[in-house]
Design a binder for these strands. Structure first.
Lengths: 350, 350
DNA sequence: CTGTTAGCGCTTTCAT
DNA sequence: ATGAAAGCGCTAACAG
């Protein structure tokens, strides 16, 4: 329960008293054992054992020390997302790697969408933050910024004062879009949310200026270029916006698209999860891939290779590690991360 | 970097001074806004803005408050394991769910195997701990216990003073082993580590008393019963111990087993990851499943269903949630979690 | 090697 | 509605 840390712990002063030494000797016993005589050390440890002293109080210590030895991780989405989404998991693993290497803990902060989220960020005992993709106007960003602690944002927004680590989403979308839409006459996009409220819609020629989610915006811009390259007007390209990044929703949306009056013959998705949902929908409808439908994903998670999915490869793990290193290490430059397109069997040969 | 939190932050006292109010008024402005006049509030906020005051210092606050609003998670393994292993991920997701619900952060502590691990556990600013499977003698357990904070251990060890959440591993192993070994004449086991150093060995009739890892020990005991049920002497059952819980190593080990002079016709593994490796090995050798080889896994991760793997189903997610609830909520009873055997196509019909 | 002094930054009394 | 005092538990900085 919440109060346990402060409950009836013995204090260093009590230990010192019982041991018959000064508080500092007791403190040294824990922090600088070499500066304490064998004898004093023994007395302190004995006293500690007798009182059930659990060691220096962590909060008191970090107050004194001025650092917490923990890195905060903020997911724009609900907390469990971190573990449910494979791309997020890879990103987290990269952060974890760096934290482990430096002896830092990694504190995942609970984001629920409620107003208190900001308070929790402010109150988190961490030395810096890594923030995972959000909208430009995410309240979370303001909260992180307000802490004035070093912070790195992944992917999304360009925020004054926050270092940013990301791939060039527009260029990558353009590149994978070229494959997705090659020889297509009716290209479509299955998109991640464009803004906080505009989910679950199917429209044509989405206005890019409307897209609050920068990652989505950049990718749409790339897909647009790719579509126009094939001679299709962006105003004719159907964009289906999913609320969540999961297989099931994408499958539903894709089924709707593919059974409509003018079914697309190519779908560029924004995640492998979504693309897998599209493939499933196509399979259920008896469509051949890439014959009837070309499909592309994003991230190159392990399942993408198994499914023969053409996709954008990026190492979210490396990006996570980079974010953590910057947040902990005080570098100050934003970095553009590497990416590549992996052509597999879900797209038409060009 | 480590020192940033304590760097040159403005303090509440400075803000109060600049605002021309007492420190308490400034404090109330942040914690009990309703007790402060509109005017005072305005002055404080203005002063804060001018000084770039980032809000109350988290460590100072939790020192005062006596709680940190964070739950510590200790993985007996290397930190990144938490994100690399699907079973661990499910477990973590359950913890995350409960933390989010209560507004707690979740701090994953870096375990590297070095001696400092214990210090980091002691020094972690968390109100309680959840520990993920280890050996009985894991130094990590002693460190957690020494903090005297509420702690829950998952799966493995029975430790005096730590609440334990687990399924009945012996019973479950017995049940799935019955399926694995049905009609088998040469049953074998692909095992997780038996003890800290005994990895990568292939032996017959492992002495259960040797097994320091309680989860492994219990499962071996169950498999033993199942093997003996079919009339096979435990001393004849080959047990291959893998160092790591991954597909690749299991595949290697299984290949060795299956190409030996007396290849097994049934393999009970200790995780789905391992079982998938075994299936891969069988496939590569042109063996039919379950005709030539019956295989069972453990955990029932999503990939198990896809592979038609007979396995033990348990909800690691629920178990994670239960652990977190106990660690945060002060319940005191160990709990036996539910499990079931899911019969699929990788075992012979009985 | 050991001890004294002086806070780290904040908030809980208990006044006013 | 506001404030003064006291101290949460610990350790850096200096003596001795």
């Amino acid at each position: 329960m919440a109060g346990t840390l402060g409950a009836k712990r013995a204090t260093l002063a009590q230990v010192a008293e019982l041991a018959g030494v000064s508080v500092m000797t007791a403190s040294y016993t824990y922090n600088r054992p070499e500066r304490v005589s064998e004898q004093a050390r023994g007395k302190v440890l004995a006293a500690a054992a007798e009182l059930g002293y659990a060691g220096p109080h962590p909060s008191a210590r970090s107050l004194r020390r001025g650092s917490t030895l923990a890195l905060g991780v903020v997911l724009g989405e609900h907390l469990t997302y971190a573990f449910d989404d494979p791309a997020a998991v890879a990103f987290m693993a990269g952060i974890a790697e760096v934290c482990a290497e430096r002896g830092f803990g990694m504190t995942i902060l609970p984001i629920t969408g409620a107003v208190e989220d900001a308070d929790r960020i402010a109150d988190a005992a961490v030395d810096g933050f890594v923030v995972w993709t959000t909208t430009d106007d995410d309240p979370t960003l303001a909260a992180v910024l307000a802490t004035r602690r070093p912070a790195v944002i992944h992917g999304g927004s360009r925020v004054e004062g926050l270092v940013r680590v990301s791939i060039d989403n527009r260029a990558a979308a353009r590149a994978v879009g070229d494959l997705a839409f090659a020889g297509s006459r009716r290209p479509a996009v299955v998109s991640q949310p464009v803004s906080r409220d505009r989910a679950g819609t199917i429209t044509r020629g989405v206005d890019l200026a409307d897209a609050l989610f920068p990652v989505t915006r950049d990718r749409l811009a790339g897909y647009r270029e790719a579509a126009e390259e094939t001679g299709t007007d962006w105003a004719d390209v159907v964009v289906a916006v999913c609320a969540r990044n999961d297989v099931a929703e994408a499958e539903r949306v894709a089924t709707a698209l593919l059974t409509s009056a003018e079914p697309p013959d190519a779908i560029a998705a924004m995640s492998d999860q979504q693309a897998l949902g599209v493939l499933r929908a196509a399979g259920a409808l008896g469509l051949t891939v890439p014959g009837d439908l070309a499909v592309t994903g994003w991230d190159d998670v392990p399942a993408a290779a198994q499914a023969g999915l053409t996709t954008v490869h990026q190492s979210l793990r490396d990006q996570g590690a980079t974010c953590a290193r910057i947040a902990l290490g005080g570098r100050h430059r934003s970095r553009s991360a590497p990416w590549s397109v992996v052509a597999r069997s879900s797209t038409r040969r060009t």
